[in-house]
Amino acid sequence: MNDETPPEEPSTDDARDHDEWARAVMQGYDGVADAYDADREPAAELPFVESIAADLPDGARVLDAGCGGGRAVLETLGDEYEAVGVDVSSAQLALADERAPAARLVRGDLARLPVDDDAVDALTALHSVIHVPREHHEAVFREFARVLRPGGRLLLTTGVGEWEGETDDWLDSGAGMQWSFHGRERSLELLDEAGFAVEDDSVVDDELGGGEWLFVRARLRE
Rank of each mutant, 00 (worst) to 15 (best):
A103Y: 06
A22L: 09
A35D: 10
G66A: 09
D87T: 03
D58G: 12
M1S: 11
A24D: 05
G209C: 08
M177E: 15
T12D: 11
G174R: 08
T158L: 03
D200C: 08
L214F: 14
E166Q: 15
E45W: 06
V106F: 03
E80I: 05
E164Q: 15
S51N: 06
R146Q: 13
T12P: 02
L156W: 05
V216E: 10
R142N: 07
E80A: 15
A53C: 11
L155F: 04
L123P: 03
F48E: 13
G59D: 07
H182M: 02
A175Q: 08
F48N: 10
D64P: 07
S51P: 05
E8K: 09
R186Q: 15
D116N: 09
V129K: 00
V129N: 04
V49A: 04
L214M: 13
G66T: 01
A125W: 01
T157V: 03
R184S: 10
P101S: 04
A100T: 00
R61C: 06
E166D: 14
A119D: 14
G152R: 03
M26I: 00
W163Q: 13
T5P: 06
D87I: 03
E162K: 10
H136A: 12
L95Q: 11
A65K: 06
V120N: 03
G31K: 02
V106Q: 03
A38I: 06
E75L: 10
H127Q: 11
R186M: 14
L74S: 02
H137E: 08
